[in-house]
Design a protein around this nucleic acid. Sequence first.
RNA 1: GUGGGUAUGGUGAAGUGGUUAACACGGCGGAUUGUGGCUCCGUUAUUCAUGGGUUCGAUCCCCAUUACUCACCCCA
Length: 424
Amino acid sequence: MAIKKPRGTQDFLPETSSQWEYIETKIRKICSNYGFGEVRTPIFEETRLFLRGIGETTDVVQKEMYTFTTAEGKQSYTLRPENTASAVRAYLENKVYGWEPVTKWFYVGPMFRHDRPQAGRYRQFHQFGVEVLGTDASVSDSEVIAMAMQFFNELGLKDLHLEINSVGCPKCRPQYREKLIAFFEGKKEELCDDCVSRLYKNPMRLLDCKIDSKKDVFAGAPEIHEHLCEECHIHFEQVQSFLKAADIKFTVNPRLVRGLDYYTKTAFEIQYPPLGAQSALGGGGRYDGLVEELDGPPTPGIGFAIGLERVLLALENQDLVPKRKSDEGVFVLTLGEEATKKGFSLVQQLRQLGCYAEMDGQGKSMKSQMKYANRIHAKYVIILGDDELHRQIAIVRNMETAEQEEISLEEVVAEIKRKLTPQM
RNA sequence: GUGGGUAUGGUGAAGUGGUUAACACGGCGGAUUGUGGCUCCGUUAUUCAUGGGUUCGAUCCCCAUUACUCACCCCA
């Protein structure tokens, strides 16, 4: 049996890779404009990091991690399912807090979750994300959101919805949680099975249940905004006013809840509805308790993660995927052994001068070589056969105009280089 | 983890219980000897995911497996 790639993974062939390159170029540009430096952490970490960082009761940790032990079986490792925990670990391990008041990092790379694959959902997927550590200023919440929106804008994506919410903090969330449980406890009969099981584990998740949230049961359910503490309330108001000041459109969705335990205060999500079930292109929020949870000094943080496969889907959906454009180049067409030897020398010289040059070398017919030259969109073809070799010249054919000229072998490389170099 | 759909050449995709499995694209070769893109011609699946069963006979029927896919769940 032929060996196939693992389920939920993808091979990116050159055509697709160039699309990724395009997206990454945008990412790097924006990050540099916002003053974010790239952090590269290991693809795998000690399993404990994710247990504590993401939360033991979350789905991600409970059923989606790729966990393994080494041959000695001493240590348990896990392929990173997201990168915030790793970034915070790196922040602490390198004692960045000791010399940098505010840290702004971004990352791009593969993440791993053992989900059932589906449109826009893969087991190895790629995220672009940012983290701001060391400030609880509401302006940084807005900055991070603005950054995500600018990323989508620059890609040309339209019709995105930005939803924001505040999920409270350890001071006010527990009370709200209790109220929610109390409210729904008597109405278990009317809830779907999933919600019943969520009721005690993570009652806030009930709020965005697709089935129950449409029912009457929800009438009169306690709203998070009525239960935020003073601090959270003010913070949320400020975030909104900063967004307005930057002319960023958003809607407040009191039922927006994030799935990872570490989120506090601000939570947000960017949706592109046409993608269907997996319409969240990105999301993020504040995680003021995470650094402490990982044994660091009390340090506030905020960040987002964007699913790049989904971004690509959205780009395809709006026909915004750039076509791969090949470089202007030259094809060296050779006939005969001696000519091929000389041709190889020409190709190498051209390449060393920074030109895109190719040849056949398989001894194919002239016609066949011409076809190939055409296929790779060569701008010039250098034709070299025994005849030309004896006369110490080469025929240079312009593939657009079909004009041909004879140039001496000594000058042909320099001449082509000149032709291919744009005039300043 | 749960439920639905689909599995035919490099790709897209017809099709039938029984000698030669359409078609399109792509690939390769050719259309006077050393010249591309257009056109034309030829060629390109001992075989219809894998394993089992029904049958005189299965790519077409049944079962299982696997993969892909969509939805639930979850999330990016």
